[in-house]
Structure formats: structure tokens, C-alpha cells
Simulated assay, not measured.
Amino acid sequence: MPKGNDLPPMSCLHAFEATARHGSFTQAGSELNLTQSAVSRQIRRLEEDLGRPLFERHHDGLSLTPAGRHYAMVIQRILRELSDETASLRRRGNDRQLTLAASPTVASTWLARQLPHFQHAHPDIEIRILTVEDPNRLDLAEFDLGIYYHVPDEVDPPGLTAEAIFDQESVSAVCSPIYLERHGGIRDASDLLQRHTLMVVEDHFHDWLTWETWYRSLELAWQPPASTFRANSYQLLMNATMAGQGVTLGWTRLLAEELQQGILVHALPHALPSRGQLSLLLPQHRHLSVAMQTFRQWLLTSKA
């Protein structure tokens, strides 16, 4: 029997955690590849070690005692944290593996086109993409490098430093040729507000550039638009824009290929220099692996 601060056997803790989740010795045994009686013995051993019952046995099943419920929450949290940290260490231990975090829009419209060039030059580096809309919600343990639009002193995710990928960037009103075929040409900035549909993202993270800000910064007359299409996802709005739903604000370097191929066109001739720049986000106080250093050097030298 354990004494003092000795921990119960891990096999007992695993059996208890599985049984607490399933409420059944039989189902826990199936998960752990043990017999029902083997799981029951592990639980009994744990209860004897702790000196109190963890389950109430009924003719129709099991239920956790108050002590059992609390202990189950503790064990599940510890096992989850241990699993997460183990996965993180294994990932970091592979110097040729790279996890890139990006917004869904950046990942799908820009990064996905760039990666084949990088992987052709560095076929030994394994790439994994993590999409998170708001960089402030990133878990620093889950990724190596991030690619996001960064606004200094306004959108500064904690624990990260930013290096600009593009030396300059501008924001224009863009739409698809399909939209213009359906609704006719856009004569000027006033006509856009009066007769056309503006795509509006309802997302606090993107509030640093709104249609009203764009108009007023360019000294164009502003009034509430006659028609809007709203969503809380910029990626959804961009897909809807390319499908001919309306006119959106687009970052010209980010959408360079869509503009070059004619998938998107400029709805107006105006362009506003962007306060935000597509940037490489690096976790502070972390050793840069070979894969991280290689990708950083390739990205910043080839895309500036």
C-alpha cells in the first residue's frame, strides 16, 4: 500500500478516469483492453488506497460519489495537460516540423499558394497549418510561427513579435466581374454607397479598418450604404465577394493573384495605404528551430 505522498499506480488512475467517463466497468475495460473484472479490481485498489469510495454501485450501474466527482475532474485535467504537453514537446523535438498559424483568409487565399514554392525548395520540412481568426486567441504552445495582419500598438498579440512580410500594402474596394455583370458598373464612390452592396465584417479584430474609415481617410463623402451583406467571418465575405455578392475591402498584396487573374477587379480607382501589414509573428523567448529559421529567412527575403 502506498504511504505518505506516494501516488497511486497510473494503471489505477487510468481505470478510474475511463470508468468515470463511461459510468461502466465494461465500457472502460473495452477502451483500455481490459476485462470488466480487471477494471473493477483497479478501482477497488484505488478506493482502498484513498480510504473512501469513489463510486456508488447500483443494480443498474455506477454513479460517482461527491469525492469521486471531484477526483475525476482533477485526474482528467492532469491527464489532459500531460497529453497536451507531451504532444507539444514531441512536436518541438522534431526540428524538421513546422506549425504555421494564420487566419482562415490568409491561409486559404495567400499562404496556400506560397507553400508549394517553399516545400519545393525545402522538401524535408513538414508543414502543418493551424487556422485561428484572432491572433489574440492563439495558444503559444500550439504553433511555431504566425502569419497575420498586424497593426502596431492596436493589434498586438501578447507574447509575440511581428516582422512585416510586405514592405507596403494598400486597401482597395474590390468585387468580381460577375457582380458587375449583374449590377452594372460603379460610377464613383457615391454610386457605390447608393446602388451597390457593401460587404461588412462584424468582427472586433477587423474594426481598425471599416468602410467608413476607408471613405473618410480618402476624403470621400460618406453616408450609410443602401445595402449591406454582413458576416462575422472575413473569409466568408471574401468567398461571397468572389461569387458575385457584393463589394468588399481587399488588401491588394494579399489578393494580388486574384486581381491578376481577373477573379477580382477594382471597383473604384482609390487605394488607401494600410495601417496593418501582413506580418510574421514569432513567439518571444523561444529558441528558433532549424525549420523556423529556414521558413523565416525564405519568407522575409522572397516576399518583401
Score class of each variant (00 low, 15 high):
E154L: 15
D156M: 14
P157G: 13
L160E: 03
L160C: 08
T161L: 13
T161A: 14
T161S: 15
A162N: 08
E163K: 06
A164D: 11
A164F: 09
D167Y: 14
D167V: 12
Q168E: 15
E169N: 15
S170A: 14
C175N: 02
S176E: 07
I178Y: 00
Y179I: 04
Y179G: 01
L180R: 04
E181F: 03
G184H: 12
G184T: 06
I186H: 09
R187F: 10
S190F: 00
D191T: 04
D191S: 12
D191Y: 10
L192P: 00
L193N: 02
L193K: 02
T197G: 04
L198F: 05
L198Q: 00
V200R: 03
V200N: 05
E202V: 06
H204Y: 10
H204P: 11
W208V: 13
W208G: 12
L209D: 03
T210P: 00
T210G: 08
T210H: 11
T210L: 10
W214M: 09
Y215T: 00
S217K: 05
A221S: 13
W222M: 08
Q223R: 15
P224K: 10
P225K: 09
P225E: 05
P225A: 12
S227P: 01
S227R: 15
F229E: 07
F229V: 05
R230G: 07
N232F: 01
N232W: 01
S233K: 01
Y234I: 10
Y234A: 14
L236S: 04
L237D: 00
M238C: 05
M238Y: 03
N239M: 11
T241E: 14
A243R: 10
A243S: 12
Q245C: 11
G246C: 06
V247S: 06
L249A: 03
W251V: 04
W251L: 04
